[in-house]
């Protein structure tokens, strides 16, 4: 009897863990990302890279003139070297959020692309991981590009700074997983704006441009709960070579975000498509 290849491929996965929601098709979804990327709007890609560079130029060299060094943990470092890691962490966040909110919302509600995907032998976890994987690839490339700008400028004080790149990917993963989970519950573009409304103050208050120790206790406490604060502390610690146990704590914060985000995304996609 003739067995179609698609059936043989699907049957080979029978009995594997999570076979109802996952078929190992993340590479295929990334392939879609590349094909779509070839004909996409390069402006969005370029602006994602330019944004942190512009912040670095304007603040690093503008404020850097007035405030050549800044004291961090008893050491004094160049102001530009203080903000560069924060900008790296923020650009990882912004890239991941863009891909996992706007892009996902459009595919989910407007083009209904996921409906088409889930009529194949893929499962919702494939779609979730594929989309998040794409966000990570983008986060990774932004981090590399930004690193290629700040390292030659002497703004990375330690060799450990190289680890800032995988750290940026971890950060992007956490934000992308949660971003996609939240987006899957959103009903309109207006609701998506809420995410943007939260991101800006988080960026401004999370110790990007000055240490949060200048804030009163209650504000410090609040800021310390925010994910971006942990992202910045993680990347800054690595770039300055301040290896301390707290860095593991910051990384752990993102591991938890990833787990929670993936759990709700898969749950929600299952509910949306298997209703």
């Amino acid at each position: 009897m003739f067995i179609p290849m698609a059936v043989a491929i699907a049957d080979a996965r029978a009995g594997k863990r999570g076979e109802r929601v996952y078929s190992g098709r993340v590479p295929q979804l990334l392939e879609r990302g590349f094909i779509a990327f070839k004909s996409s709007t390069y402006m969005i890609v370029i602006s994602g890279f330019l944004e942190p560079v512009l912040y670095l130029l304007s603040f690093g060299y503008g404020i850097g003139k007035l405030l050549p060094t800044i004291a961090v943990g008893g050491e004094s470092i160049k102001y530009a070297a203080f903000i560069a890691p924060a900008l790296l962490a923020t650009s990882a966040m912004n890239g991941a959020i863009y891909d996992s909110t706007m892009n996902v919302f459009f595919k989910l509600n407007h083009d209904r692309i996921y409906h088409g995907m889930l009529a194949t032998s893929m499962g919702p976890l494939d779609v979730a991981l594929g989309e998040i994987g794409w966000a990570l690839l983008r986060g990774f490339s932004y981090a590399c590009a930004f690193m290629a700008v700040i390292a030659p400028l002497g703004l990375v004080e330690s060799v450990w700074g190289l680890l800032a790149i995988p750290a940026a990917v971890l950060i992007a993963f956490g934000f992308a997983a949660c971003g996609m989970a939240i987006t899957s519950y959103m009903k309109s573009f207006q609701q998506l704006e809420i995410i943007n409304m939260l991101l800006l103050p988080m960026f401004l208050f999370s110790g990007s441009f000055y240490p949060i120790s200048v804030f009163p206790q209650w504000l410090q406490f609040t800021v310390n709960l925010m994910p971006l604060t942990h992202a910045i502390n993680l990347v800054r610690g690595l770039c300055l070579g301040n290896l301390e146990l707290a860095l593991l704590g910051h990384a752990l914060y993102f591991v938890v975000m990833i787990i929670i985000g993936l759990f709700f995304t898969t749950k929600r996609l299952n509910a949306l498509f298997m209703k």
Binding site: A10, A14, R20, S121, M122
Partner: peptide
Amino acid sequence: ELHGPQIRAHL
């Protein structure tokens, strides 16, 4: 309900 991906491979 139990074999979604496998069934969808036929459809």
